[in-house]
Structure formats: structure tokens, C-alpha cells
Design a protein around this nucleic acid. Structure first.
Length: 910
RNA sequence: GGGCGGUUAGCUCAGCGGUAGAGCAUCUCGCUUACACCGAGGGGGUCGGCGGUUCGAAUCCGUCACCGCCCA
């Protein structure tokens, strides 16, 4: 016997273990089945399950389970990425608690420590994904630092380097002074901050007492100024172009240059140029250098920890007049000072010297490191870059040609926009945890890129003609570099494995729009370059999970909902069903406890429907009875067929919400509300058709379980085993249902739907007229000339059901011409009289009828007007005209019926 | 400043050229032998504003407003 209530946490873990241990999640490369593959976007090894994960993995699991049941060889590839910065930060924090730094420990020992952490605490999320029910093929779990995946990284790096698509260069990069590493453009977050605009006077050379005034948001960088730029057509400054100003404090002469990119409206229209600490200034210096013979210097005045450094100013010239503005002692005092402290010191000093004109409040965007949260310092450093532009072109073409399809399609725009303006990708990181860059340097700095040290040594021997000492590059690669290879590195590449041949390209990538660039774009680039084919056919982009007010969930805001707590309380199925039902196309999902609570009863409903079946001797049937002929059998089989078709159409289109809705509607509004209710009378009295109806019910219950299994796998699996549809834990492998449509099913469907409408009408009348619940009035039936035969017959067949569900005493057929006392109804060409004389308030009923007569009249008038317009008849399609006419005719009939009823009521009253 | 998305019942959202829908909430009635996490019935919307296209617009086009996101 099924328990009175379903208690998810009592069964979920056992069911999951059974699936996992029985190999139900395992892909089978040797099978003859058509593969269906999804690569999990590997979560961060330091991560733990949050609602965003719950969303993305629920949707992926729905797709995987559905396709697996359809008989596909499903591969859902699990794993985690090594998350260079995040993991290093975690372990450094642990060390700090012991009073240690990674530098004290040394690289080798530190890495050993990280591995130790990874083995013990890493990958917590893979355990949590099991709680969610995710049917990942765990035996194939990968980690981006696995030997195989690392070999793939080296192969890709070396290949691209030899093709000239990876190169080393000294460039301005986004430097994170807290983490002391370069980061890519994508890891920079532009935040709007309230800052200031400082207006500073720079003395003009050769004209004592005259100045040029500049405005800046970063006065501390003035130490590294090499020019002042004005717009070439700015009348205020035209005369100054080509002359020189004096950089105060530093005491250097710098030119006033013209650059059309200067915004004349902003500040004073004159800007200081600091090429070593600003991307725009760097570009301006480049432009200047190309137009002039003598290049501008590019002194760095801030170091890797964000402190002032004066070393690079030392070599720069300083002559007599400028030297007068040289502030030697003050300058020396800045050495090693933190950049924001230096800002304050410099502003104060400028003010003392009468060079600070004013300070204005200023709202501007400042780049911050997305991990560290500190302002980025643009810094000139040696880094490795990937030529993203060249790699992007085939990826862009693949989407343009439809070889990879975005769902919803609008995300293509985002993808194209980024691809069009793509910048060189800085792939080196000044970290220890990650793939060490496979490049070695000779004594003279010559670089040897190779997959192994031996290979590099061989290259060096050839180059130098002798054995020399080599030093490997200290840096590691961006984590996303290895993630970009995931769709093929996990399948064994660069080896030509059977898996690689079979599962690449994958079918669909499911992810959020926030990582289209990190993931989708980079996997496309690498996949196309190395596999010569796209990594996935479809990219399904879902929204972000937000709280009930539409705010992003974050720990600092304290508005996070912990999926594990929800699973503990309501069960994984309730969470999954809520998510699935809420996953409309291209929208963020507002999630709250209340929302999950409101969907949970659906699980309970399924449970109780199953209990009803069990109590009534219904057993699991995997096939519909071959000779099913009772109209209720035919009707429910037809309805199930519609539900199956709706679910398939929804899932094919990635419409998870419609899939959930179709299942919900079929189970609740059709199977429970009508089918099971219809069954009560014949089963209770053991009618002749009871045996057939039991078998059909057992079969349709199985259809429901199979249809719902992808989204609510635990409760369905539990019931599957309980009813003996198959062995315990085998629903996951059961065949996806096919519509079963015996002869006559559609006709029966229409007739039974008519009976359902009739019962609904009677219930409405009863409620509207306050007929006492215990009253059992008589229903009289008077078939009209155009009565639908099937419907009329069905009223006879389902008489006991109608009596029960409409709470009637008897049903009588009357002869034409007979009166129909009471309330008159008109349906399917049949007139019905509900004899409620004496049970109702005649005046109230008269009022009700008049009101509905008014409504009908309004509607009929609208349709009549429409039909009266010649344009409508001439231009609208014939079927629309016919439909409108039919609707009007229906309305007229209803109006007639009400008129008749009113006359009868008047007689009753009189 | 440029781009994208949104604005439909009290709330959350479908619908995207031919009768305005769902879930939740609300109101009335009901412990009818699966389920009160239930059953039955009801109320509630000039589909953000304006203009246009069309026989017909929530749906297509233009424009404005407000909200959100991305990029400068």
C-alpha cells in the first residue's frame, strides 16, 4: 500500500543510488543507438549548488532523460573546471589562517596543498547534483587539470603558437593589483562610481605665468604623463599645439599634441596623456608616434601591487626651466606609496603649489576585477595572447549559416556583436594553479614552445647548437582556455577515440546568457579550429534566477534560496517541476519559496491519483488493451495521445514551460478530474466494463509516469516500481510513450467532451441558483432535429456518471412537444430541462437569465456587425467567415433557449 | 551615446494577425469512501500611451514613456 503522503527524502537517495549503480546514466558507445549528447558546462570546482545551477541542470536533465527514454544513446558529460583564481584564493585563505603565504610555502608545496584541498573539499557540487537528480554519466567525470585534458591544452597551445595565432607581447593589460595577475576583458566589470574630476594647471614652457588646464579622474597617474592632448579644431588650444607644457612635480617638458578623439565638451577640453596606465592614452600615444618622428615614452609609474614606482622616470630628460618645477623630495616620498594614498598626496601637493584649480564631483565608470573587486590598473607587461579575431571568423560564419542555432534566436545578436569587436585574448595569468604555459626560454630569452620539456630542449639544441639551460614560463593559462576545449578534450582528443567520433559535435549546449562569451564563443572557436566542426548544433540560452523582487540572488544581499534546503523540505521533484514550469523562453525566472510551495501540490496530486488507482485494483500495464472499446477507454487514450504530442512538441522546441503545462493539464484536469471520477461508479459496482477500464487506467497511469519522468524523476520512478510497470529503478530506461489511437477514438473523444460540457453546465446552474447540494433534481432530455448522434448516445452510455457528477436524481427522455419545466439548457442540438422547480428562487433565476441574455445580445451584435461589413465577406478567408456565422448561429440558439426559459419561469411564478 | 529585452487579470507569466489564457491569490459553496497540498462554481483585463498598415491588431510598422540588461 502506498503511504498516505509521499515523503521525498525517504526515497530519493535510494532511487538515485539504484540508478547510478545499475549504470542507467551510462552512455554506451558500442550500442547501435543514435547518440544524444550534452556537455555540462563544468561548474567551478570550488562551487556549491545554487539556484542558477538548479535551473540549468534541471533543464539539461529533462532533455537527457527524455532523449534517453526515446531510445537515444544519451551522454551527459560531467566534470568541473579548476577555476585558477577562485581555487587559489580559497587555498590562500586557508593558509592565511595558519599564518602562511603561498610565497613562503613555495610553488611545489603550494600546488600539493591545492591538490590536497581539491581531493578533500573540491567538487562538492558533484555530490549536490546527485541530490537534484541529475543523471550525469559519472563514470566519465573529468577535471580540466586531468592528464588527458592537460595534454589537450598543451597540444592546442603549441599548435596555435606555431600557426601564429598565439603570441607573446608587451602590451597594456587589465592588471588586478590585489590578485597580482593579468585578467581578460571579460573578467573586468565596469562599475559606476562617484569620483571626482580634478582640474590641474600645467605651466606652459617658455611663458612664465601661463598655464594649460587639464581635467582628470586619476591625478596620481600624472607622474607618467607624456603629453597633453587637445582636439585639433579646438580654437581655444589651436595655438598651443606643437608647443610644450611642463609636468609639475616631475619637472619634465611634455608636448601639447592634437588628437581628434579628444572630447571638447568634457572637462577643459585638454587631457593629460598617460600611455602606461590608460587604454585610450596608449592608443593616443600610438597615433602620435605614427605621425611623428620621435616616439613618446611610456613610463610606468605604478607597479604590480598598485604602488608608485619611480624607476622608469629616472632615465627621462629634465632641463633647466622644467627642473624648476621638479619637486625632488616630494617625488621621492611617493616611492612605494599605495596608489590611492599617492592620489591624495599628489592632489595636496598640487594645491600647495597653486596648481589645483578646482575639484568637481564626477560620476564615472571604473573597471574592477570581477573576482577581487578592486579597481583594475592598466599595466604594461609581457603576456601571451590568442588571436581571437582570426579564430572568431569561422565561429561567426557557423552561426550565420545555421550550423549552430541559438534558441531563442535573439541571442545571435549578442554573439555577433561580441565577435565583431573581439579583442586579442590575454590568456596568461600570473598564478600558480593551472596549466603551466608550455614555453621555455633560452639564456638569451629566445622562446621555445613545445608540448614537453624534452621537446623544447631538442628545439633549443637545434637553435643553439649545444645543450643550454632552459627556464619554463612561470605563468599559467586562463581557466577558460581549457574550458574552451571541453567538448572534445573530455572525449579523448587529441587521441582519435571512438567517443570523439561518436559524440562530437554534441547536440545542445544549455547555459545562461551571461556566459555566451566565456563559453559558447570560445568553445565554438576552438571546436571549429581543431575539430573542423561546431561543438554543438543548438545553444539553448535560459534566463537568470532572481528573487521574488527581480533582484539577482547574492550572498551579500542575503536573498539567496538554497536549493538543497528546498530539496530537503519539498523534495527535488517539486523544485524541478517549479523550475521547468517557470522556464519560459528568454526570460529571467523569479523564484521564491512561495512559488515552489505553490507547485508542490502537483506532486501530491500525482501521488494521490496513484493511491486511488491502487485502492481500486488498478495495476501497471505497459500496453493498452488491444480490444479496448468502451468510450471512456477510447476517450482517455485519445486525450493521452494529445498530451504526448503536446509534450513532444514542447520539448522539441525547448519549451520547458509548455511541457510542464501539458503534463499538468493532462494529469490534473483530464485524468484526475474526469477520467478517475468517471471510473468511480463502474468500478464500485463492478460493471461489465470494469476490467477493461482498469487495464486502460493502468496503462494511462504509466503514460503519465513516463511523460513526467524527465521533470519529476523520483516520484515517478517510485510509483513505476510500486505498480510493477517494471523492475525497481527501470523507468529511467522505459520507452517514451507513443500515442495509441484505437479505431473510433476521435469520435468517442468528441462525444465524451460533450458530456463533460453538459455536466459543467448543470453544475454552473446549480451553483448560480443555490440549488442545495443534497437536492437531486431530474434532468429531461429533448433531442432536436439536428442533435449529434454520438453525443446523444453517450448521454445514455455515461448516464450513471452524469447522475453522480451532476448530482441528479434521474434522467428522462421526453417526446417532442413535451414541456421542459425548470431551467433549460441547449447543447449539441439537444435541449435539456433541469427540473429545479421548488428548489430555487424564481426571481433570482429570472435576473440571472436576463443578465446572460444581455451578454449574449452584446456578443451577437458584434458578430452580426462584422458579418454585415461587405469588406469582411469579400476579404476575409472563407473559413473565418463560416466560423463567424456558425458562432452567431450558436449565440442565436442560446438566446432562444433563454427566452423559452424566461417564459417558463414566468408561468411558474404565475 | 549605441544595442537588446520587457510593459497582458492583484502576483508570476504564456499567447505574437482572426471568440483574451494558465498557475497562484481572491469570493461563494462543499469533509461526495485518492487528495482540504482537495472538489464544485464565480468575479476580475479598453493586452503601457499615441499614430499607422489591415476586412480584422495584444499580435505587424512607426513613435513616445517607463523598467531591466549588455556595450561605449
Amino acid at each position: 500500500m502506498l503511504a498516505k503522503t509521499f515523503v521525498p527524502h525517504e526515497v530519493e537517495e535510494a532511487i538515485y543510488a539504484r540508478w547510478e549503480n545499475s549504470g542507467a546514466f551510462a552512455a554506451d558507445p558500442a550500442s547501435g543507438k543514435k547518440p544524444f549528447t550534452i556537455m555540462i558546462p563544468p561548474p567551478n570546482v570550488t562551487g556549491s549548488l545554487h539556484m542558477g545551477h538548479a535551473l540549468t541542470f534541471t533543464l539539461q536533465d529533462v532533455l537527457i532523460r527524455w532523449r534517453r527514454m526515446q531510445g537515444r544513446d544519451a551522454l551527459w558529460q560531467p566534470g568541473t573546471d579548476h577555476a585558477g583564481i577562485a581555487t587559489q584564493m580559497v587555498v590562500e585563505r586557508l593558509l592565511a589562517a595558519e599564518g602562511l603565504s603561498r610565497e613562503q610555502l613555495g610553488r611545489e608545496a603550494f600546488l600539493a596543498r591545492v591538490w590536497q584541498w581539491k581531493e578533500q573539499s573540491g567538487g562538492e557540487i558533484t555530490r549536490q547534483l546527485r541530490r537534484l537528480g541529475a543523471s550525469l554519466d559519472w563514470r566519465r567525470e573529468r577535471f580540466t587539470l586531468d592528464p588527458g585534458l592537460s595534454a589537450a591544452v598543451r597540444r592546442v597551445f603549441v599548435t596555435l603558437a606555431r600557426e601564429g595565432l598565439i603570441y607573446r607581447a608587451r602590451r597594456l593589460v587589465n592588471w588586478d593589483p590585489k590578485l597580482k595577475t593579468a585578467i581578460s576583458d571579460l573578467e573586468v566589470e565596469n562599475r559606476e562610481v562617484k569620483g571626482h574630476l580634478w582640474f590641474i594647471r600645467y605651466p606652459l614652457a617658455g611663458e612664465a605665468g601661463r598655464f594649460i588646464e587639464v581635467a582628470t579622474t586619476r591625478p596620481e597617474t600624472m607622474l607618467g604623463d607624456v603629453a597633453i592632448a587637445v582636439h585639433p579644431e579646438d580654437a581655444r588650444y589651436r595655438a598651443l599645439i606643437g608647443r610644450e607644457a611642463i609636468l609639475p612635480l616631475v619637472g619634465r617638458r611634455i608636448p601639447v599634441i592634437a588628437d581628434p578623439f579628444v572630447d571638447r565638451e568634457k572637462g577643459t577640453g585638454a587631457v593629460k596623456i598617460t600611455p602606461a596606465h590608460d587604454f585610450n592614452d596608449f592608443a593616443a600615444a600610438d597615433r602620435y608616434d605614427q605621425a611623428h618622428g620621435t616616439p613618446l615614452p611610456r613610463p610606468s609609474v605604478i607597479d604590480r601591487e598598485g604602488r608608485i614606482t619611480l624607476a622608469e622616470l629616472a632615465g627621462l630628460s629634465r632641463d633647466g626651466e622644467a627642473a624648476a618645477w621638479f619637486d625632488a623630495d616630494f617625488l621621492a616620498s611617493l616611492e612605494g606609496m599605495e596608489r590611492f594614498a599617492a592620489r591624495a598626496a599628489i592632489v595636496a601637493r598640487l594645491e600647495e603649489r597653486g596648481l589645483l584649480v578646482k575639484v568637481e564631483d564626477h560620476l564615472h565608470t571604473v573597471p574592477h576585477g570581477d573576482r577581487s573587486g578592486v579597481p583594475i590598473e592598466p599595466l604594461l607587461t609581457w603576456q601571451w595572447f590568442a588571436d581571437a579575431k582570426v579564430l572568431a571568423a569561422p565561429a561567426e560564419a557557423a552561426v550565420r549559416e545555421g550550423r549552430t542555432r541559438f534558441v531563442p534566436q535573439m541571442w545571435e545578436n549578442t554573439f555577433f556583436a561580441w565577435m565583431r569587436d573581439i579583442q586579442p585574448w590575454c590568456i596568461s595569468r600570473q598564478l600558480w594553479w593551472g596549466h603551466r604555459i608550455p614555453a621555455w626560454y633560452g639564456p638569451d630569452g629566445q622562446v621555445f614552445v613545445a608540448e614537453s620539456e624534452e621537446e623544447a630542449r631538442a628545439l633549443a639544441r637545434t637553435a643553439y647548437g649545444e645543450e643550454v639551460a632552459l627556464r619554463q614560463d612561470e605563468d599559467v593559462l586562463d581557466t577558460w582556455f581549457s574550458s574552451a576545449l571541453w567538448p572534445f578534450s573530455t572525449l579523448g582528443w587529441p587521441d582519435e577515440t571512438p567517443e570523439l567520433a561518436r559524440y562530437y559535435p554534441t547536440d545542445v549546449l544549455v547555459t545562461g546568457f551571461d556566459i555566451i562569451f566565456f563559453w559558447v564563443a570560445r568553445m565554438m572557436m576552438m571546436g571549429l579550429h581543431f575539430m573542423k566542426d561546431v561543438p554543438f548544433r543548438d545553444v539553448y540560452i535560459h534566463g537568470l534566477v532572481r528573487d521574488e523582487r527581480g533582484q539577482k540572488m547574492s550572498k551579500t544581499k542575503g536573498n539567496v534560496i538554497d536549493p538543497l534546503a528546498i530539496i530537503e523540505e519539498f523534495g527535488a521533484d517539486a523544485l524541478r517541476f517549479t523550475i521547468c514550469a517557470a522556464a519560459g523562453p528568454g526570460r529571467d525566472i523569479k523564484l521564491s519559496r512561495a512559488r515552489i510551495e505553490s507547485q508542490r501540490p502537483f506532486i501530491t496530486k500525482l501521488w494521490n491519483a496513484a493511491r486511488f488507482c491502487e485502492m481500486n485494483g488498478i495495476r501497471g500495464e505497459t500496453a493498452p488493451p488491444a480490444a479496448a472499446s468502451h468510450p471512456l477507454s477510447l476517450w482517455i487514450l485519445a486525450a493521452a495521445g494529445r498530451a504526448i504530442a503536446a509534450a513532444n512538441a514542447a520539448l522539441e522546441a525547448y519549451r520547458f514551460d509548455e511541457y510542464a503545462l501539458a503534463c499538468h493539464h493532462f494529469l490534473w484536469d483530464v485524468f484526475c478530474d474526469w477520467f478517475l471520477e468517471f471510473l468511480k461508479s463502474p468500478l464500485t459496482r463492478e460493471a461489465p466494463e470494469a476490467a477493461e477500464l482498469r487495464r486502460v487506467a493502468g496503462y494511462v497511469l504509466g503514460v503519465v509516469l513516463r511523460l513526467l519522468h524527465p521533470v519529476i524523476p523520483f516520484v515517478t520512478e517510485n510509483l513505476w516500481g510500486h505498480f510493477g510497470f517494471g523492475a525497481e529503478g527501470t523507468l529511467i530506461r522505459a520507452p517514451w510513450p507513443e500515442p495509441a489511437a484505437p479505431a473510433g477514438a476521435e469520435a468517442a473523444y468528441g462525444a465524451v467532451e460533450g458530456v463533460i460540457r453538459l455536466i459543467g453546465e448543470i453544475r454552473s446552474v446549480r451553483a448560480a441558483l443555490n440549488v442545495p447540494p443534497a437536492a437531486r433534481p431530474t434532468l429531461r432530455i429533448l433531442p432536436g432535429a439536428d442533435a449529434e448522434g454520438g453525443f446523444l448516445g453517450m448521454i445514455g452510455t455515461l448516464e450513471e456518471q452524469i447522475l453522480r457528477l451532476a448530482q441528479l436524481g434521474t434522467i428522462e427522455r421526453v417526446q417532442p412537444g413535451a414541456a421542459l419545466p425548470g431551467v433549460r439548457l441547449e447543447l449539441g442540438g439537444v435541449a435539456f430541462g433541469l427540473d429545479v422547480a421548488g428548489l430555487i428562487d424564481v426571481a433570482a433565476e429570472t435576473g440571472r437569465l436576463r443578465e446572460s441574455a444581455r451578454k449574449l445580445a452584446r456578443e451577437a451584435e458584434k458578430l452580426a456587425d462584422k458579418l454585415a461589413r461587405p469588406d469582411f465577406r469579400a476579404r476575409a478567408p472563407a473559413e473565418v467567415v463560416a466560423e463567424t456565422e456558425a458562432r452567431l448561429a450558436d449565440l442565436r440558439r442560446e438566446q432562444q433557449a433563454i427566452e423559452t426559459s424566461l417564459v417558463q419561469l414566468a408561468a411558474l411564478a404565475g
